[in-house]
């Protein structure tokens, strides 16, 4: 089953199957101490840069900053939801710790 993943409106949204699912301005808790030195960066999302799927996991690359220390930048790929029978299932991104996968193209 093909799934349509897009970044919309100048990076305001992740669109999954033509529905706007993930918005900028959310606060995410990242498991990525290498991003800024904070053990679990408290990360505000300012812009969505890219979206992709790895198996059933939908991940996004986003620009933002840690509101604890102020470091700004792009962490690796951050999971934002799951695909279940082609449907997007949200995860409570503001309350769970999100693992960050760093790829070859990350800094």
């Amino acid at each position: 089953m093909s799934v349509s993943l897009r970044v919309l409106d100048d990076g305001a949204w992740v669109s999954v199957n033509d529905a706007r699912e993930v918005s900028v301005s959310e606060l995410w808790r990242l498991d990525d101490p290498s991003f800024c030195g904070c053990e679990l960066p408290d990360f505000v999302v300012e812009n969505v840069l890219d979206v992709g799927a790895d198996g059933r996991t939908v991940s996004a690359k986003v620009y933002g900053q840690c509101i604890a220390c102020g470091h700004a930048g792009v962490p690796g790929w951050v999971p934002v939801g799951r695909l279940r029978e082609g449907e997007f299932v949200d995860i409570d991104r503001e309350r769970v710790v999100l693992p960050v996968r760093r790829g070859d193209d990350d800094e």
Binding site: L8, D10, A12, W13, S23, V24, S25, V44
Partner: peptide, 10 residues
Amino acid sequence: GTEFCSLSIV
């Protein structure tokens, strides 16, 4: 702002 705009944070 967030009243209508997708990008705004506040």
